Amino acid sequence: LKKGSQVEALFSYEATQPEDLEFQEGDIILVLSKVNEEWLEGECKGKVGIFPKVFVEDC
């Protein structure tokens, strides 16, 4: 996944840490960066945070 690409949430993700990005199933997320193999940083609904890659798929 490249910076600036968009992904769609397959499942809702509930934030458990302040840096987490919370979203609902079906939301479109703009990928800002790759944190590591399992986590991405993205923006959704004006909020920025990190989230697990397994919760999303390429649009």
Rank of each mutant, 00 (worst) to 15 (best):
V48H: 08
V48C: 07
V54Y: 12
E38D: 12
V56H: 03
S12Y: 01
E8K: 15
P52A: 08
E19Y: 13
N36D: 06
L32E: 09
V56M: 01
E38C: 02
L21A: 04
Q6E: 10
F23T: 02
D27N: 02
G42F: 05
L1W: 14
L30A: 09
V54H: 15
F11Y: 10
I50S: 06
W39P: 04
I28T: 14
F23L: 07
N36Q: 06
K3P: 14
G42Y: 06
E14L: 09
L10R: 13
E19G: 15
K3V: 12
E22P: 10
D20W: 02
I50K: 13
L1M: 13
K53W: 01
F23P: 01
D27H: 06
I28H: 13
S12E: 00
A9I: 05
G42E: 09
E8S: 13
G49W: 11
K34S: 07
V48I: 11
C59G: 03
Q17C: 13
L32W: 01
K3E: 12
E37I: 06
E57C: 11
W39H: 00
C44S: 02
Y13H: 11
D58H: 13
I29T: 05
F23K: 12
S5L: 09
E37V: 13
E19S: 09
D27G: 05
S12G: 07
K34P: 01
W39I: 11
F55M: 13
E57A: 14
E19F: 03
P18D: 14
D58C: 14
V7D: 00
K53H: 00
D20C: 12
K45M: 07
I29W: 12
S5N: 00
E22R: 07
C59F: 12
E25I: 03
E41G: 10
F11H: 06
T16K: 15
K3N: 01
K34L: 07
E8T: 13
P52D: 06
L1E: 13
G42C: 02
L40T: 02
Q6H: 15
V54K: 15
F11D: 01
E22K: 06
V35F: 09
F51K: 00
S12H: 06
T16L: 12
Q24E: 15
S5F: 12
N36E: 00
E14W: 10
V31L: 13
G49N: 02
L32C: 07
S33M: 03
E22L: 09
A9D: 00
V31C: 07
S12D: 11
I50L: 10
K53A: 09
G49P: 02
Q24P: 02
Y13W: 06
Q24K: 13
Y13F: 07
E41Q: 14
K47N: 09
K3W: 02
L21V: 10
V35H: 01
F23M: 11
E38M: 09
I28K: 15
E14K: 14
K47W: 07
F55G: 06
P52H: 11
F51C: 09
N36I: 04
I50G: 08
W39V: 08
K3M: 12
E57R: 15
S12Q: 00
E41R: 13
F23D: 05
E43H: 08
V31G: 12
W39R: 01
E41Y: 15
Q17R: 14
V48P: 00
Q17E: 05
F55W: 05
D58T: 13
S5E: 13
Q24A: 10
I28Y: 05
K3A: 06
P52V: 04
V54L: 07
F23V: 04
I28M: 12
L32H: 14
K45N: 14
V56K: 03
E8Q: 15
Y13A: 05
L30Q: 15
P52G: 10
L21F: 03
V31A: 03
V48E: 00
C59I: 13
D58V: 11
E22F: 05
W39M: 13
V7I: 01
E37Q: 04
S5Q: 08
V35I: 09
G49D: 06
T16I: 00
N36M: 07
V48G: 07
L40E: 02
D20M: 13
E8V: 15
I29D: 07
K47I: 03
F11K: 13
D58Y: 04
